[in-house]
Simulated assay, not measured.
Amino acid sequence: MTHHVKATREIPVASADLWQTVRQMTGVEDWYPGLSRESEVLEEDGTEPRRNCLMQDGGVLKERILLRDDLTRTFVYAIDSHPLPAKNVVGTIRIDDIGDGGSHVTWSANMALDLKSADQIAAMVTGMYEAGLASLEAYHRDSQVA
């Protein structure tokens, strides 16, 4: 059964600045908690660029980048291999300008989950996205101070 998870956050950083961080194929480990080293980029210039992200617990996320749209500041990816009990995972990060140098960021995903563990896994992924958005904000706040 397909489940939809979503986390949102208003971040007091210009949408163009946030987008420059999110749209990159590398450097995710600089702002996303739980990744241990630089992403390995495969076929960056292909129609569906790919990257592997190594998690601190040793797990690997193998991603295909489906869309990086500079106009709408939308990043869509499929996770083809991961340690979670989920299938057909497609995530989206969208950054909307809300004026006065602020942004509304939405991180969502659709995924097939087993009914027995769906609520638990959905809550865990939502928490991961919330932590990622908080970390993205902190990364930009800290880089402005430095």
Score class of each variant (00 low, 15 high):
residue 19 W to H: 03
residue 48 E to G: 09
residue 94 R to F: 04
residue 90 V to W: 02
residue 12 P to Y: 09
residue 55 M to R: 07
residue 17 D to T: 09
residue 135 S to E: 05
residue 105 V to N: 01
residue 128 M to D: 12
residue 15 S to Q: 02
residue 92 T to A: 05
residue 48 E to M: 13
residue 2 T to E: 14
residue 82 H to K: 08
residue 129 Y to E: 04
residue 88 N to W: 13
residue 28 V to F: 14
residue 94 R to G: 02
residue 35 L to H: 00
residue 137 E to W: 05
residue 4 H to W: 14
residue 48 E to S: 10
residue 41 V to L: 02
residue 85 P to E: 07
residue 84 L to G: 03
residue 81 S to W: 12
residue 68 R to C: 06
residue 11 I to H: 01
residue 3 H to K: 14
residue 10 E to M: 13
residue 47 T to A: 14
residue 5 V to P: 02
residue 123 A to H: 15
residue 104 H to M: 09
residue 65 I to H: 02
residue 54 L to G: 08
residue 125 V to D: 02
residue 13 V to N: 01
residue 100 D to H: 13
residue 132 G to K: 00
residue 144 Q to R: 15
residue 52 N to K: 14
residue 37 R to K: 11
residue 99 G to E: 06
residue 1 M to S: 11
residue 137 E to G: 07
residue 30 D to V: 12
residue 60 V to G: 11
residue 33 P to H: 04
residue 115 L to E: 15
residue 87 K to V: 12
residue 66 L to F: 08
residue 113 L to H: 00
residue 133 L to P: 00
residue 12 P to D: 08
residue 16 A to W: 12
residue 5 V to S: 00
residue 22 V to G: 01
residue 140 H to N: 04
residue 71 L to A: 11
residue 62 K to N: 12
residue 136 L to E: 01
residue 122 A to N: 01
residue 103 S to L: 06
residue 90 V to F: 04
residue 70 D to R: 05
residue 131 A to V: 05
residue 100 D to I: 09
residue 85 P to D: 11
residue 31 W to C: 01
residue 35 L to S: 01
residue 64 R to I: 10
residue 97 D to C: 08
residue 96 D to E: 10
residue 25 M to Y: 08
residue 80 D to Q: 08
residue 115 L to Y: 14
residue 20 Q to K: 15
residue 18 L to Q: 01
residue 61 L to F: 04
residue 127 G to Q: 03
residue 92 T to Q: 04
residue 45 D to E: 12
residue 111 M to Y: 02
residue 121 I to R: 02
residue 57 D to S: 05
residue 116 K to Y: 13
residue 43 E to H: 11
residue 5 V to D: 00
residue 53 C to M: 08
residue 42 L to N: 07
residue 111 M to A: 02
residue 12 P to R: 07
residue 143 S to C: 14
residue 108 S to A: 11
residue 55 M to D: 09
residue 30 D to G: 13
residue 68 R to Y: 08
residue 143 S to N: 11
residue 19 W to F: 05
residue 31 W to S: 01
residue 43 E to T: 06
residue 21 T to H: 02
residue 64 R to H: 09
residue 65 I to S: 00
residue 112 A to T: 12
residue 34 G to C: 05
residue 50 R to M: 09
residue 138 A to F: 11
residue 48 E to R: 12
residue 25 M to N: 05
residue 41 V to K: 02
residue 44 E to P: 11
residue 128 M to L: 15
residue 95 I to D: 02
residue 91 G to I: 03
residue 46 G to W: 10
residue 68 R to H: 07
residue 106 T to C: 07
residue 141 R to Q: 14
residue 91 G to C: 07
residue 138 A to N: 14
residue 94 R to H: 09
residue 25 M to K: 07
residue 23 R to Y: 05
residue 80 D to P: 07
residue 112 A to G: 15
residue 54 L to C: 13
residue 108 S to C: 09
residue 28 V to G: 08
residue 19 W to M: 04
residue 142 D to I: 15
residue 9 R to C: 09
residue 26 T to A: 12
residue 20 Q to C: 13
residue 140 H to D: 03
residue 82 H to G: 06
residue 8 T to I: 06
residue 130 E to I: 09
residue 3 H to D: 10
residue 123 A to S: 14
residue 17 D to A: 13
residue 46 G to N: 09
residue 115 L to N: 14
residue 80 D to E: 13
residue 37 R to H: 15
residue 78 A to V: 10
residue 87 K to I: 11
residue 124 M to L: 15
residue 18 L to H: 00
residue 70 D to I: 06
residue 81 S to D: 15
residue 25 M to S: 06
